[in-house]
Design a binder for these strands. Structure first.
Lengths: 367, 367
DNA sequence: ATGAAAGCGCTAACAA
DNA sequence: TTGTTAGCGCTTTCAT
């Protein structure tokens, strides 16, 4: 005795399978009495419509997807607070969590469910295809899957790139959302220069292949240009985007120069590194922000918990997710509209680590 | 020109559709040369296997589901930090987020994707069925969907109840996971009594229909019994599980009695209320923990941010999600094993609000 | 190792 | 309003 189908329900209710289908898809189109019979039959049989069959027949799933990289960062391996010690971010949200939340809500409002899948180290090839096959459209966090793969898939269904490259020409026809990396870093650096009077600033960047990191550095440069200061040609240090690397970067930065050359402030390409730097600086006896200002980028919750609280630029991850759904749905309605490229505004969060007062509430500026 | 199918690929590659199918399902079973031809054809055509068709033909989706209530709690309406002011929990994780994370990881490890859907206020009926139709099995946060609905669906595919009732007899045949509500509250209350020497404790419970709340109250009672103190018969106050209600509960508690009867500590059925209470007490000039101890239950991240930091019992939400996947997969392999009921252990987090020292790291006890 | 053919459970014209 | 009838794109015996 396998799962009941429309046929079973139809027979039990004494109607045709079409009527059963109608009852589920468009109840109004069936007379109330008939409908009741069908529902009764379905109930007693324990009938549940097969999503697969529906999807196959209607070529639409009412499901949106999200693919993201496997963020199993070593920094966050505290499954459930066995050690509730120093804040390590383990119980805080990851980007993916916020995006998921944003997408889920937006999708739900429009009658879609959300299918999520992180790419495992092995078999990433499968991942996207797997997801792609079960949804009407999906969002991908950049760098999650090989470009060629995406390209093939994007020919068949709407894909929106999140925080990804507009650079990769081959993906130019995809809708795409990013945050104002350059402008955000510009605003933040400007704050350091103009409001705190800092002059010697160092930038700790990511690897050159990170579009986000590079864009942020351009903002950093722009602020210098704007202020009539010498414009740095490249990041003082490049590192991976982890706390450990932030720690390391500090070592590199403070070892190299004589005391006179020590920077007055360090601008990190992301919060994780900045947090790692905070630790490193404390160990060295360098006071933040008195001796040295430190700022990050991203706005991770952990940034508010560390001491001093981290000044940063917040990315609207939730909105990213919502926007992704918007674009997806729009594209579903008009497959051949021009590719859209959205830049989401960010906001500067002034906390203690840049030298600002750390009131009960953070100061915010938009950019 | 619609999306290419196995037929298109087969034709292009000069093989049969069966071979194309094999290449995707079991590459080893096809000669390397043939395989290459097929993959090439697929690539040039932009072929992506249809999940729906696969699901229909194979009666299995490799997707697990999660249904949860629409936690659009008014307490957390700060879409993206327009106000980064007082911590309001908006950027912190919700239960659902942690469970999602736990399930996603566990599922992925086993080769499943995760379909998530919150129940909208309207049409909840659809929600579960919708999900049920597209997955091999799913988890439901209790109180998300009507019991009868679940019952029908559970006849057809594995369902695991999360944090739900073992009480509802009609759902007794479902697998089910809960946390040690009673034992956790017992341990916490014991701490208040034995370690802090408190005698007059008040309990602020939830509505009587909340199994969790009731179980926690039983733990509260048990601690009294254990200590030889008079055992309270019912919660001193009952309230909804929100900050606002916690605030209100304080008013009620402190208004009723004369000064002599004022409790030495208040045990709240959840953290949200406790946090609300903290605010209310500060306004009244009651010092926590000097004048009055306050403890919660749940272990929400916000609890660490408030002043004083909240002593509480932490629920292992992430583990809940992982365990759910475990049970689901096990049930998928043996549909007729005995229903399983798992109780996850919780841990007491001692922070400042109960009178404990607030070191750099929290103290933890297990129960 | 590969092919032929029969469904899988539903939707969507089209009839009635 | 309801029924008939083709598929939807794939997996899966069973042959070859």
């Amino acid at each position: 005795m396998s799962a009941p189908t429309v046929y079973d329900v139809a027979e039990q209710a004494g109607v045709s399978i079409a009527t059963v289908s109608r009852v589920y898809r468009n109840p109004e189109s069936v007379r109330a009495g008939t409908r009741a019979k069908v529902m009764a039959a379905a109930r007693t049989l324990g009938y549940v419509p097969s999503g697969s069959a529906r999807g196959l027949a209607s070529r639409t799933t009412r499901v949106l997807g999200l693919c993201f990289p496997d963020y199993a960062d070593p920094d966050a391996e505290d499954p459930d607070g066995e050690s509730d010690g120093a804040p390590d971010g383990s119980e805080l949200m990851l980007y993916s969590d916020e995006i998921i939340r944003g997408m889920e809500r937006a999708a739900r409002r429009r009658g879609y469910a959300l299918l999520i899948a992180a790419s495992l180290a092995e078999g990433p090839e499968n991942l996207v295809a797997e997801v792609a096959g079960r949804v009407d459209g999906f969002a991908v966090l950049s760098q999650t899957v090989p470009v060629e793969e995406l390209e093939v898939i994007a020919r068949r269904l709407p894909v929106v790139m999140l925080a990804g490259p507009r650079e990769d020409a081959s993906l130019d026809h995809l809708d795409h959302i990013e945050v104002a990396n350059r402008d955000g870093e510009l605003a933040l650096t400007r704050h350091l220069i103009a409001d705190h009077g800092l002059r010697r600033l160092a930038f700790v960047g990511s690897t050159p292949d990170s579009p986000d990191g590079e864009a942020r550095f351009r903002g950093f440069q722009a602020a210098h240009r704007e202020a009539g200061l010498p414009v740095p040609e490249r990041p003082n240090v490049r590192a991976e985007l982890t706390q450990a690397e932030g720690h390391r970067a500090v070592g590199e930065l403070l070892a190299v120069g004589s005391a006179g050359e020590r920077p007055e402030g360090i601008v990190f390409a992301n919060d994780q590194m900045a947090v790692g730097a905070l630790t490193a600086l404390r160990r060295r006896g360098v006071r933040v922000p008195e001796d040295l200002a430190v700022v990050g980028f991203d706005g991770i919750p952990l940034g508010r918990l560390v001491t001093p609280a981290l000044t940063t630029v917040r990315q609207p991850m939730r909105r990213l997710g919502e926007k992704a759904v918007e674009l997806l749905v729009a594209r579903l309605e008009d497959r051949k509209a021009e590719p859209v490229s959205v830049v989401l505004p960010v906001s500067v969060i002034r906390r203690r680590s840049c030298g600002c007062d750390d009131g009960s509430s953070d100061s915010v500026t938009y950019s």
